[in-house]
Design a protein around this nucleic acid. Structure first.
Lengths: 250, 250
DNA sequence: CCAGGGTTGCGTACGGCGTAGAGTACGCCG
DNA sequence: CGGCGTACTCTACGCCGTACGCAACCCTGG
C-alpha cells in the first residue's frame, strides 16, 4: 500500500499543469523544455523510453536537476498529455460545433483525435488513472461537448455520448497501431508476428467449437493482407454510433 | 530498440498458453500454481504488485525458479489473462447466443465482461499489445461472436460490432473504477481526491470559454454525489450502441 | 571590490525491477 | 551407495524513480 500523497502535492500538480512553474535557472532548464524533450523521446521511441535519466540526458543535464522543475514522473507525463491536446483545436473551442450539425461535429472530434493518435501513438500506452485536469484537457472537453449541446440530451447523456465516441476512436486507433506500427517498439511487424505464431497455433488450436471465429478470423485476415483499412472499421463504428445517438434524440 | 524475439520464443509462448508446460518439480512448483499466485496478488493489490519476486515469495521459492516454468513476466501476465477469461462462460461457447435475440446476446456479453472487470480490476491496467492467443481467449471470442452470426452483417462487420461493445464496457468499467475503487492503489478515495484538488482548480481555472463543460461537469458531479450509478452510463451507452447496430442491419 | 547567503544543479545512494548465467543440492536410477 | 541430470537458487547487471546532502553559482549588501 503506497503512502497517500499529501493534499499539497495534488495542488502543486494542478498549479504546475496550469503554468505555475519556476523561471528557467542558470542552465536554461524550464518546464516547457523538459516537456518538449519528453515529447520528442516519446514520439520517437515510445513511452517506455521516457525516463527521467533519458530526458535529462537529452537536455545535457543531471537527472536530479529535473526535480527542481517537475515533482516527478507522473506529473511530467500529465504535462506531456496536456501539451499534445493543444494540437487538437488550436485555441478555438468552437471548432467542432462550427463543423455543421451535431453529427458533423462529432465526426470532426473523432477525426482530430484519430489523427492525434497517429502523431503520438504513445498516448495509447498511458495507464488509466485519475482525470487529467490541465488547461488544454479542459478546453478539449469543452470543445468536444459543444456540438452535443442543445440537441435534446441531458448533461449526463452528453458526457456519456462523448465518452462513447472517444472510446471508439481509442480502441480503433489501438487496433490500427497493432496492425501497422508496433514494429517500432518490438522490432517485428504484425505480418511477421502472425507468420511466426501461426504454425504453433494451428498445431495446438484444435478446438472444434471455434467455427464462427475461424470464419471471421480468416475473413478479417484476408482483408488485412489485402487492402484492409483500419480506417474503415473506425468509420463504420463511428457511423453506427451516430445512428444510435440519433435514435436517442427526441 | 529492443532485440526482436526469436520465432522460437513466440511459439513457446503459444504452447505455454495452451497447456504445454513441464510437470511439477520437487518443490511442487507448477505453471497453474504460479498463475494462481499471480492472480491472488493482482486481485488483492493490483497489477503493479505482481513482480516475479513477489510471486516467488508467495510460493516459498526463489525468484529465478519461476523461470523453469514460465519464460518471463509477459508470458505470466498472458497466462493470468487467459485464466480469468475462463470465468466468463464456463466451457459453453453457446451461452451468449442462447440468451435470446442478438440484442440479448450482446447484453449478456457486456454484462459478463462488466462483472469480470469488477472481480479483476487489474484487467484495466494491462498495457495494449498483441492479441492474446490463449484457449480461453479464443473461446471468449467465439462465444461473443455467435450472437452476431447470421443477422446480416459481414464477417468484418461482426468483428467491428463486437469490438464496439467490448470497448464500451472497457471504458465504462474504467470510469466506474475511477469513481469508486482506486483507493486500493492510491490510498485515497475519489471524493477525497476531488476535495483535495478542487481549491487549487477553482483558483486557477478561470477560462471564460468553459461554459458547457462547467455545466456538464457540475451536473455529472451532482449525480455522482447523489445516487449516480456508473452502471447507468454503461446501460445507456450499450442501448445506444445496440440501436446503432440495428440501424445497420438489412 | 569583496563577503555572505540563498538558490540551483548534481553525485551518490537506496531499494526496487526483470532476468542472464553460474553454482548448488536434491531425487532418482543403477 | 555412487553418480548424474535436473530443479532450484545465488549473485550480478543494468535499468528505473527519487531522497538526501553537498558544491557551485549568482545576487545582494557593504
Amino acid at each position: 500500500m503506497p503512502p497517500r500523497p499529501p493534499v499539497q502535492d495534488l495542488a502543486r500538480s494542478v498549479y504546475l499543469l496550469w503554468g505555475h512553474h519556476p523561471a528557467p535557472g542558470r542552465s536554461g532548464l524550464s518546464v516547457p523544455g523538459i516537456v518538449a524533450a519528453g515529447l520528442e523521446i516519446a514520439d520517437a521511441e515510445g513511452l517506455d523510453a521516457v525516463s527521467m535519466r533519458r530526458v535529462a540526458e537529452r537536455l545535457g543535464v543531471g537527472a536530479m536537476s529535473l526535480y527542481r522543475h517537475v515533482p516527478g514522473k507522473d506529473d511530467l507525463t500529465a504535462l506531456m498529455v496536456d501539451s499534445v491536446y493543444a494540437e487538437l483545436y488550436g485555441d478555438d473551442v468552437t471548432v467542432p460545433a462550427d463543423a455543421g450539425d451535431w453529427r458533423d461535429g462529432l465526426r470532426l472530434v473523432a477525426a482530430r483525435n484519430w489523427d492525434l493518435y497517429a502523431r503520438h501513438p504513445w498516448l495509447l500506452d498511458l495507464r488509466p488513472s485519475r482525470p487529467n485536469l490541465g488547461p488544454h484537457t479542459s478546453r478539449k472537453y469543452e470543445a468536444e461537448l459543444r456540438p452535443l449541446d442543445g440537441i435534446g440530451l441531458t448533461e449526463v447523456e452528453m458526457d456519456a455520448a462523448l465518452t462513447l465516441v472517444l472510446s471508439h476512436v481509442d480502441s480503433s486507433a489501438r487496433a490500427a497501431r497493432s496492425m501497422s506500427g508496433v514494429e517500432a517498439s518490438t522490432g517485428m511487424s504484425d505480418a511477421e508476428w502472425w507468420q511466426a505464431v501461426t504454425p504453433a497455433l494451428t498445431q495446438v488450436m484444435t478446438d472444434p467449437d471455434l467455427t464462427v471465429s475461424a470464419r471471421v478470423g480468416s475473413a478479417v485476415g484476408a482483408e488485412f493482407n489485402a487492402a484492409y483499412s483500419p480506417a474503415h472499421a473506425y468509420t463504420w463504428g463511428l457511423e453506427t454510433l451516430l445512428d444510435g445517438l440519433a435514435a436517442r434524440l427526441p
